[in-house]
Design a binder for these strands. Structure first.
Length: 291
DNA sequence: ACCGCACCCTGAGCGC
DNA sequence: TGCGCTCAGGGTGCGG
């Protein structure tokens, strides 16, 4: 799914279609795991409201609706937030696309996975939120209410310091990779960028967090920020489902050093990239370059 | 407090 | 063609 760079890319591209607009109508799918706030309640709360801002908090997006009301969005693994003018070309799989009549291959038509449709006042496209696996989330946060999900988040990965990582690691037997994936430690980091940052830092992802030195924490945090910033510059990684709001691919998948490269040669030393499960997530590393 | 694991859900790709 | 299996970028909640 979308990690920090993909969510940031989504934010930058979708903001012009949302911010300053009034929501005239909201269409949803039926109640499901996806809706933390029931869809009927959501429609009622949103219709007629003006969108004042859109911001990213870790991997979450927060819509500001005035008077302190907010809407929390999370893209989960397969969430896609995009303009209704985006073509179907990348939004659907090749097989799903082939099954459509030609006109729908050019312009995306909401399907059963399109859980939210924002019809906005004035010119400009509608905005759709589609999510096949429904691991995404949408929740209304009324003015003055706190939110557990947001409250649990630690420092945004782009802002974090080596000292924060080092002190979080203290006494922890879990893998350093698990620490990076922990959103209360570094908000926004996910599986791809955790693997990439640890490779660039030369640290084995399975090493116990408490065995990672202060100096190594410096390197990890430096490389992590570098990788995240570079990925934002290229529009994120499009590996399976992620597409930018205009339906285009990101570019960072072409710059990956280890993620998804199991069995291929390490670009530094030529040894085979290994894959194993760490923290229940598929993890890629070079046993020669990472200690 | 910490840790590992089951679970939420759908679809693609692969071997047979 | 079809079946069964594995895999997927995330996060929560439980029991030990």
């Amino acid at each position: 799914m979308p990690e920090l760079p993909e969510v940031e890319t989504t934010l930058r591209q979708i903001a012009p279609f949302l911010v300053g607009k009034r929501i005239e109508r909201v269409t949803t799918t039926a109640p499901s795991y996806f809706f933390i706030t029931p869809p009927a309640e959501l429609r009622k709360s949103l219709e007629g409201r003006q969108i004042e801002f859109l911001e990213r908090v870790g991997k979450y997006l927060v819509l500001g609706l005035g008077e302190g009301d907010r809407l929390l969005l999370h893209l989960g693994m397969t969430g896609q937030l995009f303009s209704s003018e985006a073509a179907s070309v990348r939004l659907l799989s090749a097989t799903a696309r082939a099954a459509l009549p030609p006109e729908e291959q050019i312009h995306f038509k909401p399907d059963r996975h399109t859980h939210l449709q924002f019809e906005l006042a004035g010119e400009g496209p509608q905005v759709y939120f589609r999510d096949v696996r429904k691991f995404g989330k949408v929740q209304w946060i009324a003015a003055g209410e706190s939110n557990d999900r947001l409250d649990r988040l630690g420092t945004d990965a782009l802002e974090m310091s080596a000292e924060e990582l080092f002190s979080a690691n203290r006494g922890r037997r879990v893998a350093i990779k698990a620490m990076l994936l922990d959103q209360s430690v570094a908000a926004g980091v996910g599986n791809i960028y955790a693997d990439e940052a640890l490779f660039l830092a030369g640290v084995r992802p399975g090493r116990a967090a408490k065995r990672v030195t202060r100096v190594e924490c410096e390197t990890i945090v430096t490389q992590l920020k570098r990788v995240l910033k570079r990925s934002i510059e290229t529009g994120g990684s499009s590996i399976s489902d992620y597409v930018a709001p205009d339906g285009s691919d990101g570019g960072y998948q072409d710059e990956r050093k280890v993620y998804g490269r199991k069995g291929e040669a390490c670009l530094v030393c030529g040894n085979e990239i290994k894959r194993k499960l760490i923290a229940q997530r598929s993890t890629h590393y070079c046993a020669h370059c990472q200690r």
